[in-house]
Design a protein around this nucleic acid. Structure first.
Lengths: 211, 211
DNA sequence: TCCGCTCTTGACCAATTGATCAAGAATTAA
DNA sequence: TTAATTCTTGATCAATTGGTCAAGAGCGGA
């Protein structure tokens, strides 16, 4: 029983290695087919292990799923964490947009995994959303509100601004197929996307004197 | 065989009625669980028909799925269709945002159905995306480009502007659970959302003299 | 009323799939 | 080397589920 060791959870070389193999494969499969649509066999095949062997490391399909989610959560939130109250507002938000956009390009499977999970009611990470995520967002919303109060940013509901940034940036990972279909499958639409989003943001958020 | 009639596809009263029942139920179930996650039994139960009876009207599970998609597509695109080249640019785009936002509030299942379909590679509507959808978007992008050329709108890539509007508005349907979790489940966040998006758009798109 | 067509369903089938288990192979610590 | 532990897998099970079928119930036109 590798998951419930006698005392400390000391892991074998083989154990660490195989768990990593499994989670990598699981991310691909779950993000492509969803929880129910993915099969243990697919994951096993993708990482070159037998199905029983895979279930030796993770006793239930669901355990693999939650493990992949947990493993990816932190890196997904990092950019928001980095939003600095002491920085220049528009610069900070621009950096945030760029960072999220880069994640969408470099790790689209992670984005799709979350999108699928939330789309279906977030059965596995509901508590995370209401707890740690809410706290982080509330915190950064307060930062943004501070900037607005200081007249350094146009007035806008900070929470919805954050939602708008999430939506527009993750769109390029989650709806990639649609974007490619509409644009005609040019490989490198990301530069244009970044320019468009940043200009919208910069113009949209520049503080404006009341008229 | 109700689907392949001898000559004209004349439908019985019972037929029309039951097909409607089925498609209504199917929309709910497919949008909640995805194609693979949904079962024919669930749909049957939801509309009070037996499973074999349901398969009498739609021979395959997949047939129900595509029927629901088709049935919903038109109404989903209608607002973009309505974008009027002769209108006032910002006013037109604002109306578009409001219309899409209203759809997200009033028919979130439809949004989630499409989101799920596209997220998983659009196996059923891929051709629609590359055909009719692309044509419509290209058409409206040209309209927007025209406005920009006439100096009535800030310069921005029109395609990506449309993507941004899709993303931000549909976000409130597709990621509803997350939005509620972060906001603390206030029932009526939609008014604030609309205000935030419109102000971002209006400020972001107002033509600005070069500095 | 009567007849043909439409509609409905209980029983059933085959394929898929998550999970188990026992037995053997590989690894590791002594 | 050896013995204990960890790792691996073929065979197998039970549950789920998409889909079939035949037989009967219901409906509508003549």
């Amino acid at each position: 029983m590798p998951e419930v060791k006698t005392s400390a959870a000391r892991k074998t070389r083989i154990q660490t290695q195989n768990e990593e193999l499994i989670l990598d494969a699981a991310l691909e499969v779950f993000s492509a087919y969803g929880f129910r649509g993915a099969t243990v066999d697919q994951i096993a095949a993708k990482c070159g292990l037998s199905k029983p062997n895979l279930l030796y490391y993770f006793r239930r399909k669901h355990d693999i799923y939650t493990a992949v989610l947990k493993r990816t959560l932190a890196s997904w939130l990092e950019p928001l964490w980095a939003l600095d109250a002491n920085g220049e507002p528009i610069e900070e938000l621009s950096r945030y947009v760029s960072a999220k956009l880069r994640l969408s390009r470099e790790r689209p499977e992670a984005s799709r995994l979350f999108a699928n999970e939330i789309l279906h009611g977030a059965p596995a990470i509901g508590k995370f959303l209401k707890g740690p995520l809410k706290r982080l967002v509330d915190d950064k919303a307060a930062v943004i509100q501070g900037w607005i109060g200081a007249g350094r940013l146009a007035a806008i509901d900070p929470h919805h601004l954050i939602f708008a940034i999430w939506a527009t940036t993750q769109h390029y990972a989650d709806f990639d197929v649609q974007v490619r279909a509409v644009l005609g499958n040019h490989d490198d639409y990301m530069a244009a996307a970044e320019q468009a989003l940043l200009s919208l943001l910069v113009n949209g958020l520049k503080p404006r004197p009341k008229e």
